[in-house]
Nucleic acid binder design. Sequence first.
RNA 1: GGGGGCGUGGUGUAGUGGUUAACACGCUGGCCUGUCAAGCCAGAGAUCGCGGGUUCGAGUCCCGUCGUCCCCGCCA
Length: 592
Amino acid sequence: MLKTHNAGELREDHIGAQVTLAGWVNRRRSFGELIFIDLRDRWGVTQVVVDSSEAPEAHAVADSARAEYVIQVTGEVVARGEEAVNPDMPTGAIEVKAHTITVLNEAKNPPFQISEGGTEPNEETRLTYRYLDLRRARLQRNVILRHETILYIRHFLSERGFVEIETPILFKTTPEGARDYLVPSRVHPGRFYALPQSPQQLKQLLMVAGYERYFQIARCFRDEDQRGDRQPEFTQLDLEMSFVERDDVLDLIEELMIGIVEEVSDKRIGQKPFPRLAYREAIEKYGTDRPDLRFGLHLVDLSEVAVQGDFKVFKNAVESGGKVRALVAPGCAGYSRKQISELEDIAREEGAKGLATIAVNEDGSVKSSIAKFFSEEVLAQIVSTAGAGPGDLILIVADAPAIVNEALSTLRTEFGQRLELIDPDVLHFGWVIDFPLVEWNEEEERWDPSHHMFTSPKAEEIALLDSDPGAVHSNQYDLVCNGYEVAGGSIRIHNREVQERIFELIGFDPAEARERFGHILEAFEYGAPPHGGIAPGIDRLVMLLAGEPNIREVIAFPKNQRATDLMAQAPSPVDEHQLHELHIALAVESEE
RNA sequence: GGGGGCGUGGUGUAGUGGUUAACACGCUGGCCUGUCAAGCCAGAGAUCGCGGGUUCGAGUCCCGUCGUCCCCGCCA
């Protein structure tokens, strides 16, 4: 080893020891004949001091050293003078008096400062020089937090009898879901592998194979457009168990999540045990199936009372199957016209045609552009149904339920932030359960699974599959946290007949189902145990644990919004020769 | 596929159609033996993303284009 100690471990106990450290020049402070170097490695920073009168050669090297030079320092650990102690540094009680300094490698001046205190470069620069960004404290912390999270998961599950099993990256295209990443086969001209969107089928087959408890830190690939919480490749804790019921999975994951948060992060759990919300309840209270549970501001339904006036917008909405729903913003009655118009813009962006407001004055009277359509009595009833009090502002949206919920859910989040109701140190988990099995797809005029096609319907509702599929609930469960979906899972179908019935319901003809999923249908005939599982998204989870705004901050080498790697410049053109071997002719002109 | 924000020395920003594009950090050199975001002095460093247009005059206005970020669609 080129070092005897790391730069984070030296303390007063080491005083008098001869040590060799190696790392990067974090900062250099020169007084001419006396030079301080903050030597940084992965474990911390230690101050090195060089005195020209005591170590002239080392001093000359220190004089020429620059930020990010890789150096090796040998010297004695000494106590700092009383005034020189730095209480902000873990190693601040000591310093290393250097007698030898060696430059192991020089460094160009980096495009942005690695040590803390510099200006924050924009993301394009950070991604282009990702290896330098990864050297900075923020990403070092996040990458290590990610490691600790995954390590915790492996220990936790292994102790409980889970087996980690790898599944193929080169697999088969699936007809539903996201766009696949395809890999051409050289051996089979014209055929393609697909990268897995998740190991869903394989983990179910592992249950058929009798492993009973499987997990994998699995890379998944989906060729869809990016978001702050979506990358083309991402990592899931993929997990499956046999002979379980819903609550077995929920209890296990709840214990795991609490353990991770409490052992690995500096965040606090919002509520234990995690609250459970029926899907319907989540939509009613929050307007979304992934609510931020850190604050209240529940939505309220005003449909019944709102039609008792002459306001056509409300009446028409309800008559055509829509809803009139509201959000009460406490203490916001004084909002100006301009502020209200901003809120209206937010509602419009979510598809609402407008936003009605009722401000409740301190004396209990109301101020509202729609007051003229209602009698005083009805108006008072609206206020009381909404649960608004003096000083509050009621925001009302009337439209189709989906639009109303989306608009109010967005406004709810907006007010959570505006009114500072959100504690950034809290992770408020919750379960959403009792999802509908299928949703009607207007465009394609068919039923789509709301989770995926292997999710089992509630046993007591199977009879409804033929008569009223939309009324059937599934054994699906989602784990939400702070407005993000961090895990989704279900108790699966383990019976061929039921699986074929679902395929039929979502519009696969039997021949197609056999072509695509023959292996799994057949497997169900060879003693498939009842089973279920879940897949927490590691990137999102670590993002929340780290308090970061997007998952790129917890992925070592992420891709940008356009799915390119700015550092390596991937994707890139390939040789004609490579294409030829793969039996591929390009339909676009090559860029080069 | 669509909407929006941003693009100015290495980095981050300011810059109201009008002189030599300003500031901070960083960088280079000098001074300095107790700093730790060291300090002081001096200096270098920008074809204002690119192309076109309007104008006597464009970093600034207009059009296009490229890059990047956010959002909608999409993501079983």
